[in-house]
Design a protein around this nucleic acid. Structure first.
Lengths: 348, 348
DNA sequence: CTGAAAGCGCTTACAG
DNA sequence: CTGAAAGCGCTTACAG
């Protein structure tokens, strides 16, 4: 049915050279004479020849493939959280392709084995780990990866003692920017919705930025205006219900993620509280939805393209045995309608 | 630095059997005695051994990998369109994993070469093509794939003469359901926003369903209420502007995609027209955003899980040389607020 | 039930 | 600049 694929030997026969020369010519080796090289490549093209990756990989102990492991702590109902990852996936595949790597994708549940075997089986030369959540739970998996001498880059903060290398967003600075923006607009009773425990280091860093901004305005965080929430719209909604129940006055909310912010805005609307007139709301992530909700959400953007480049640079560096440093990139405040800074904000 | 991975030969030495027996034992061959098999597998586990995929693949001419090619006709600004694909990706990787396949992802631009070499280079045993858009443009690529004897499944409609196999949504039926729903609510002047040309077969099928529903109510489509639009919020917005400019009365809109519907609703809101009081709007796709806009969007859902299973079943069947039929799955009307069927609709 | 042997299609020292 | 040869780590007839 399906014709056999041509091999380098077939090309050698047609070109009248040895198979070794074909291999060299195809890889543009300077060892082979230009005319020979051109002839070989010409024939390869005519035959629609492509190097057998399994054979090449077996020989070189490389797969030229990266495995992207996406893990998701949510129950899957809040698919929207994945939007940033989607953009990351897009950018990572492109960045990887530019460097000659394919990307293997795996959606991991936290309970699954973490596919240490991707590298051990020569399916991938390195891993990129992408996920939000509780690092206390991940830690054990990361240790296992490290023990197996797996090369991996983690999307996320720089955590002391954490095995492996990471590339992340400077969440502390982002939290500072968000809060500073609210303060600059004259808001002073700024609620915080999100975690701040160390086991959730991204939230924790954003919280620290929030506190630093308050301090910079000679204020201190008000514990009555702090409500824990994981990353979901529902929990943002519920947090605002609690906030209102407490009765402590507030004029702004810093939600530690866009999803929480959107839930919070819905709760405010349901209670007849106007955003941004009565209360300003700022989120974090800049997921596509943020521009589409009403009022559109002012938020802190993590540039997915930059993130992808950082992660792919890192893992390719590790594969090549180069020294790699864990790094953070700067986030960017995106001003829309939800804080009142742009009264007649352009929505498109 | 990194210790060499163990090979089947290492296990053979430790187990005191031949390398061939190790290979058989690892693959649970009934040929090898249970005790031998258990001993070999035990040692493999202790050594954290994993079969070298390159070697196995070279030998068997299989990669146990599927390539998922996502192509996107938009300019990339309307990332939201990708949401259904994201869900597809999720479900496809899981469905593939269940069948022992990894998934390689590639985000294709229409202008790129379509990586015929995925299969020719033994990187993938088959392809899944995922994208919306204009089949006239794809056609040439599909022919090239077919000419290269590449196995592939296309997400989309069954198109006569189109090379390869497809699995898609019964868009005609979906268009019928959407329109029927509007008719059942007493709407009679139903605008259609979307393409209907054959070169855009998904839109075309939805349009045919729209027409059939109208006929079933003894109505005919009103050409003054038809406005072409590609899949973007912006174009949905603009279509409604044109619709209003024409002055032809209407009480409902069937938008051929959710994104168009959302743009349409925004345009209606900007003109002070109430949805669903004055005008009912129904979309197609049920992207996550659909539940979050206000009013929440009644739409026709394509079940991503079912779609993924269909595509993966198809491609695995093709790989195994089994007969595979192109098939359609049934869409499902999801009733929310935008048509007025659920006055006090639950938004969550 | 097990082993010896061939061979999948490359890459790369080694020799010329 | 080119070729002959080894070998990457498996799987699977072939023989026993």
């Amino acid at each position: 049915m399906k014709a056999e694929n041509p091999t380098s030997r077939d090309i050698a026969d047609l070109a009248g050279v040895s198979q070794a020369t074909v291999s060299r010519a195809l890889r543009n080796s300077p060892l082979v004479r230009k005319e020979t090289r051109d002839r070989v490549q010409q024939i390869a093209r005519e035959l629609h020849y492509f190097v057998n990756r399994n054979a090449a990989g077996l020989r070189t102990h490389q797969s030229k493939t990266l495995a992207l492991l996406l893990f998701d702590e949510t129950d899957g109902t809040d698919k929207s959280m994945n939007l940033f990852f989607w953009s990351m996936l897009d950018n990572i595949t492109r960045a990887a392709a530019r460097r000659g790597y394919d990307v293997l994708v795996s959606l991991q549940q936290l309970t699954n084995d973490w596919h240490i075997e991707y590298q051990a089986s020569n399916r991938a030369d390195g891993l990129i780990l992408l996920g939000y959540g509780d690092f206390a739970e991940y830690r054990e998996k990361l240790d296992a990866l490290a023990a197996a001498h797996t090369r991996f880059m983690i999307w996320g903060p720089i955590v002391n003692d954490q095995p492996g290398h990471s590339f992340g967003c400077d969440n502390e600075h982002g939290g500072y920017q968000a809060t500073r923006h609210l303060l600059d607009l004259g808001r002073s009773r700024i609620a915080y919705i999100g975690r701040r425990a160390l086991r959730s280091p991204e939230h924790a860093a954003r919280y620290l930025g929030y506190v630093r901004a308050l301090h910079s305005a000679s204020m201190a965080p008000n514990e009555k205006l702090r409500f824990p929430a994981d990353n979901s719209e529902k929990l943002g909604y519920e947090a605002v219900q609690k906030l209102l129940a407490v009765g402590e006055p507030f004029d702004a909310i810093f939600a530690v993620t866009d999803l929480i912010a959107i839930g919070a805005m819905r709760a405010l609307a349901d209670h007849g509280i106007s955003v941004p007139k009565d209360v300003s709301v700022v989120g974090f992530d800049d997921m596509p939805l943020a521009a589409h909700v009403s009022p559109s959400l002012t938020t802190v953007q993590q540039n997915a393209r930059m993130a992808a480049e950082g992660l792919v640079d890192g893992i390719v560096g590790l594969i090549k045995g180069q020294p790699v440093e864990s790094r953070l990139m700067a986030p960017k405040l995106i001003i829309r309608e939800s804080c009142g800074a742009a009264a007649a904000a352009v929505r498109r």
